[in-house]
Design a protein around this nucleic acid. Structure first.
Length: 389
DNA sequence: AAGACGGGGAG
DNA sequence: CTCCCAGTCTT
């Protein structure tokens, strides 16, 4: 932060204002808060699992996944011993699949190198894969009572409004300013409740758009409320829009109703998941990359991908239609073709996929093959046009 | 500093 | 449509 920002920051947060904030926040939180599964039977394992799942994911989305994981893997040792494909299959649909592989890797570290006991400090937790500054502080404070501040999307919004901060929160200077303020404000007596209260406040009162200031316990120490401009915070630098891209995929079903799927490599989009084989169509880099129709470019790209990636040299058959899917940084139009089953087409070494296998199409969900929502859309399209019964 | 990385909910 | 969500990692 700049020297001026540092000085105004110190001036703005007198000991009295800090104490008022902590007390009002604690009183509000203890008077009633959401009952969340990971707030009961607190253990490092449960807190860690919930924090990883909650990264960039809404609480309501996480809850059913949290229950399924705990049921399948009651302890970190159980998780460490599981097959990674089975862990991914339970994670399927939650997104950001790197989180899942990091989760599994961290479980192995804890189980195999640390005797099944989680590190007891934020500094040590930070060394686990998938655990950054936020998550390390969350686990350390909630599970171990360490005085370590958290800064997530909720807290950023709360702090930006408390200080009417004009520095964009999604920039280096803005982040440094906010971490410093969060560390200054965190309660020395009960950091676990303080951190959860800050996030709870952001989630249920100090919401994006129009906050519910009349119900806010800390409005009397809030600069944005005093100025009547809470809706103007947090200030953010605009993100770039997702660019449109085009792809092709083949639905290949044999006479026994089994479908050919291939597993994507780890270090790519949707890494480790299975899909109907295909790949990108290198179109013009113009705004509209085309797609959504049966054309020569799509057929040529699919023919090449099937040959290079799987050693399949048959040409695509009927055009089944298109599915669209939006990622955070890509807007994909995927053209789907049928492919005549070619049993025993000898397979060259896989160049992109890490595996290829036939799956019983009527029981895909129970075969431990993790599928993305995109692939589910492809299978749904094929089912709609009755590629298989 | 900027981009990659999913999917769904809310307005 | 847009924005956002109990962020982390790589380049």
């Amino acid at each position: 932060m700049t020297h001026d920002a540092q000085r105004s920051f110190e001036t703005a947060w007198s000991d009295g204002r800090v104490a008022d904030l902590r007390d009002a926040l604690a009183g509000w939180y203890h008077a009633g808060h959401r009952k969340l599964p990971w707030r009961e039977d607190i253990s490092p394992y449960r807190v860690w699992l919930s924090e990883i799942m909650c990264q960039q994911t809404q609480v309501a989305t996480v809850i059913p996944y949290f229950h399924r994981f705990l049921s399948a893997f009651p302890t970190v040792t159980d998780l460490a011993a599981a097959d990674e494909q089975d862990v991914l299959a339970l994670w399927a649909g939650l997104g950001y699949y790197r989180r899942c592989r990091n989760l599994h890797a961290a479980a192995k570290v804890v189980a195999n190198e640390l005797g099944g006991v989680f590190p007891g400090s934020a500094a040590e937790l930070l060394a686990l894969p998938g655990v950054g500054r936020y998550t390390a502080a969350a686990i350390a404070s909630i599970a171990f009572g360490e005085v370590a501040a958290v800064l997530d999307g909720n807290v950023k919004r709360v702090l930006a409004r408390l200080d009417a901060e004009d520095t964009p929160v999604n920039t280096g200077p803005g982040e440094r300013l906010q971490w410093a303020l969060a560390e200054k404000l965190v309660s020395r007596d009960d950091p676990a409740s303080h951190n959860q209260a800050m996030m709870e406040l952001g989630a249920v009162v100090c919401k994006p758009g129009t906050p519910d200031c009349p119900r806010c316990p800390v409005s009397d120490v809030c600069a944005a409320f005093a100025a009547g401009t809470p809706d103007q915070y947090p200030v953010k630098k605009k993100k770039k829009k997702a660019v449109a891209v085009r792809g092709v995929a083949a639905v290949c079903v044999d006479d026994d109703g089994r479908i050919l799927l291939a597993r994507r490599p780890d270090d790519v989009l949707l890494g480790g998941l299975w899909e109907a084989p295909g790949g990108p169509v290198d179109g013009s880099t113009a705004k509209d990359s085309g797609g959504g129709e049966d054309d020569g470019a799509g057929r040529a790209a699919l023919t090449q991908h099937l040959s290079e990636r799987l050693g399949i040299r048959d040409a695509p058959g009927a055009y089944l239609g298109a599915v669209t899917h939006v990622f955070s940084h890509r807007r994909l139009t995927l053209d789907v073709y049928q492919l005549r089953a070619t049993k025993g087409s000898s397979r060259d070494p896989l160049s992109f996929y890490t595996a290829a296998s036939w799956f019983d199409a009527s029981a895909l969900g129970s075969q431990h093959a993790p599928l993305s929502r995109l692939t589910e859309k492809v299978l749904e399209l094929a089912s709609d046009v009755q590629v298989w019964p």
